[in-house]
Each structure stands twice: as structure tokens, then as C-alpha cells.
Design a protein around this nucleic acid. Structure first.
Lengths: 257, 257
DNA sequence: TGCGCCAACTGGCTTGAGCCACTTACTGGC
DNA sequence: GCCAGTAAGTGGCTCAAGCCAGTTGGCGCA
């Protein structure tokens, strides 16, 4: 793809970045290793400190290194992925009495914690309104926001939207929703989850998301817009999952139809 | 989430970036609009050009703007997502005679083009070897690399791995694999696709991927590690899809088991 | 009219200097 | 033996200046 001879001479900052990248990928520098300081790098390459700094910025953007203020720049540890599977909706998980998140946390020997910062009646975002088939210009939904932590590290932000007319006055408006969680209550309302639709995309986080998830520069987020359909094909719940991509993966296992 | 009063005074570069971000999100600056030049921004905020430049870098990293050398900095257009569905493996799509990619391209009125840069016997990467259940230290697989384009814009890179002992001497070693593609040939070898496992993650692209996909800074990639299982639960094909996340989404629709 | 050149403007990248905030390790006093 | 204070080293961020390279549009020549 690139030309036979590297005809275009790379600018110094990129050359330094590529040197370091090669060293990291070849294992010459291992995860956790400290890189030379910006000042040392600059001197070694006969460049200005800003140029060395720019090289490190490039690597950080690629997710290869992390700078720790006052301490140094370190090769990033490969993260064990927390997997969220298509079976998170599975009925058989009900039997464990654990929510899918707690189950996955337990599998990895971590302590799960879930915060519910807000539950409120709201106007839905347009993409949610479309999928839940409610008007976008009225306060037609209940919005439940949840933050999930594993060993006190934030892992995902989940916004769940339910029809206001159904949720009104029920446990769905409370932080504790009772046995089997919201899906238990929704079943009592006549909605048995039969099919799900997950729309997946990836993007860079907003500043708010970066703060909430304590994301380092160069870490994207995975966004899943989830729709639950009941036995009649009626959408009764829409959720937006925002996962940190450095610690999270998704797993879908499905039959070919 | 943030403190009541913004006690920590943001550095100038961030302040400029946040100003611009707010203007973009409020619609004050629309997609396609040109931002003030670095020099103009610097003067307007009483800062050095480098500082204005840093602000723009921050926005670019968030995927909000794109710089065009010699021309200006522009608010990025929201991209229509090219959706790859779980039905890409579906048998019913066979009837159209089109591959899933060509089908999706046609839906969006774009011209699909597929390149096959290489087909070679290789040692598999460890993650592929694990899933295909072949040794990682031998040349046990055939690696087919494909590049997909829509209207000549690169959209995804796909690496397909097949067992060498099965593919050897068949059409699977050729660029043109005949009717119904590789899955047609694999069926003749006794593998009917019955279940699929897709492992999804997101990350920043490597420099090579950024070059091949013509990615702008601040655009992550979606990686799908796909495994096909046959009627006996035997994995017979593993593919790694690398999608550009600014134009691509994934759609999984599945029954709850 | 049409085309080619060129000036002005844009971002890309570097330099070298300086100040600040945070971390770490050592050192001296209690 | 402990602990507080400090000095040295680190990244975070800015400044002011300069050169380069790509783009654009207008001006003037043929």
C-alpha cells in the first residue's frame, strides 16, 4: 500500500513515534515499562522537547502508552476484556438470581457495584423515540440512568427508557425494582422478551463520558442501542449502553436463520 | 457530575475547545461549516497560535471536526451508517445472488467493489488458531485478505482464515470462489453454517489500518472476530472484520433463548 | 475567452524557552 | 524509628517565531 521506497521523509515526531511503536510491538519494551522522559527522548533524537512530546501524544492517541503526570510515560497493559454477551438477555440467567453484570463480574473475580444516579420522566431522544414508538416531543418516557463499576472502576453507563404510561406508579420508578429486575416487572405488564435488536457503533467519548468512565486519551467507547421486543413484536424497552472499549467487548452467539 | 462551581480553571486550549464544541452542538456551527483559522482563533482569544491549534486538535480527537491542509478546519458531517447485520450470514440472502456487502451497498445506492490483495498459506494468529482449533505454530491455515469499497471509499478490511487441509487445491485458494462464495464451497466440504459467534471490540486503528481505510484522526475501528460453526458445532471458518467506525455500524437481531 | 501563474491564506510541524503541578526519594530533625 | 520537608525529576501547558506545503482565487497575458 505504501510506496516501495519511503519516499516521503516522515517528520521527526512521527519518526520517533514509529521507532517507539516498533520497540513496543517487538516486545523490546514490555507493558508497564517506563519510556524515556520527554527531555531524554528529545536529546537522544536531537529534537526539541515539544517534538518528543508530540511523538508521545501520537502513541497515546493510538492507545499504546499512558502518561502519568509527574511520574512518566508507560507502555499500556493489555486489558482483560469484560465480555457482555448476547446471553445477557437470556432467561436462563434468571435462575442465578444475579443480573448479567454481577454474573460477569463474579466470573472475573471482581466486585460489582451499580449506582442509579437518576430516574425521571423525560422527553426521549429521537433515536429512542423512533424505536420505542413514542412521541419525541412529549415527556413520554421514564429514563433510568445506571452506572456500573467493577472493583470500583467504572465500566459502563446505561440509560434505560420505558413508556411513561406503563411505568407510572410502579416499581419501575424506584431504584430497587424487585425480583428479576425491570424485566420481571415488565413481564407482569404482559411483555415477555422474545427478540432483541442491538445496534452497535463505536466513537470517541464526549468529555462527560470520558470523565464518568475515567477514560484515558485514545480510548474509544462502544455504544449499543438495544431494543427489546415482546411476544407480539412490540418494542417495550430501549436502552443505550456506553462501554469503555479498553476493558469491554461484546459477544454475540446466534443461530443462523 | 462536575463540581458546582468550575473551581479548577481550565487551561486556555481546553476553554477554546469547549467553546467551539458548545457552538457545534448547539447548531450555531453546522456540519460543513468552516471554523475560524488557527491564527484568527488565537487572536480572538488572545492566545498563541499553538494554543488555538491545540484546541482544534482536541476537537479532532473527539471526532467533531476535520482539518483540511491548506483549506481550513470544518465541522464534520454526521455520517450515514453502513449497517452490517447479523443477517449477513443468513441463508435467505443467498437467493439474491449478491453477497451481503453488495446488498447493503445497493440499498444505499452505492457501488460496491471488492479487492483481494492476497491469498496465502500462513501461520494463524493465536486468537484465530484458538477459535479454529488449529496449531498456531504451523502453516495450518489459508489467509484470504479482502478490502471492501463503497463508491471507491474503503469501508472494511476482512481477513478470512480457513483450514489449509480443507482449502488446499480447491476454489477456496482462488480469488473467485464460484457460486455462493466461500460458504458455497465449504458446504460442499460438509460444513453447513448453523451458528455464529461474533466477538466485538473497538480500538484506535494501527497506522496501517488508518492508511488503508483512509481514516481521519479521531476515528476508531470496530473489530469483529467471527467464528462459523457447522451442524456438528465444529468451527470451520474464522474471520476478522475491521470496520471504520465513522461510517459503519453493526446490527444484531436475535431471538432470546 | 481561456489559461497559467502567482500571491495570499490555510494548516503541518518544529524550535527553544519558561512556568506550573505532581511524584518520588532522600535527608535531616525529632 | 518515624516523619516532615525538600530537591530533583517528571509530564502539562503555553508562548512567540519561523519555515514548509497544500489550496484558492484573481490577475494578466496570450
Amino acid at each position: 500500500m505504501t510506496s516501495a521506497r519511503p519516499s516521503t521523509p516522515q517528520p521527526p515526531s512521527r519518526r520517533i513515534a514509529e521507532d517507539l511503536r516498533r520497540q513496543i510491538e517487538s516486545g523490546e519494551r514490555s507493558p508497564g515499562d517506563k519510556l524515556p522522559s520527554e527531555r531524554a527522548l528529545a536529546e537522544a533524537y536531537g529534537a526539541a522537547r515539544n517534538t518528543a512530546r508530540e511523538a508521545i501524544r501520537i502513541l497515546a492517541e493510538q492507545g499504546l502508552v499512558t502518561a502519568k503526570h509527574g511520574s512518566g510515560v508507560f507502555v499500556r497493559e493489555p486489558q482483560r476484556l469484560f465480555r457482555f454477551g448476547s446471553d445477557r438477555y437470556s432467561l436462563k440467567n434468571r435462575e442465578t438470581g444475579l443480573t448479567p453484570f454481577r454474573l460477569e463480574a463474579k466470573k472475573q473475580g471482581k466486585v460489582a457495584r451499580i449506582e442509579v444516579p437518576s430516574i425521571a420522566r423525560e422527553k426521549p431522544p429521537v433515536d429512542v423515540a423512533e424505536r420505542l414508538k413514542v412521541p419525541a416531543d412529549e415527556e413520554s418516557v421514564v429514563h433510568r440512568e445506571n452506572h456500573y463499576f467493577a472493583d470500583d472502576e467504572p465500566v459502563q453507563i446505561v440509560s434505560t427508557y420505558l413508556r411513561w404510561d406503563e411505568a407510572q406508579g410502579t416499581l419501575l420508578m424506584q431504584p430497587k425494582t424487585g425480583k428479576d429486575g425491570i424485566y420481571g416487572r415488565l413481564e407482569e405488564l404482559g411483555h415477555v422478551m422474545t427478540r432483541v435488536r442491538d445496534e452497535i457503533s463505536a466513537r470517541m467519548p464526549t468529555p462527560e463520558e470520558a470523565a464518568t468512565l475515567e477514560l484515558l486519551p485514545g480510548v474509544p467507547v462502544l455504544e449499543v442501542l438495544h431494543t427489546s421486543l415482546d411476544q407480539d413484536g412490540i418494542p417495550f424497552e430501549v436502552s443505550r449502553y456506553v462501554h469503555r472499549a479498553d476493558q469491554t467487548g461484546l459477544l454475540y452467539e446466534l443461530p443462523v436463520e
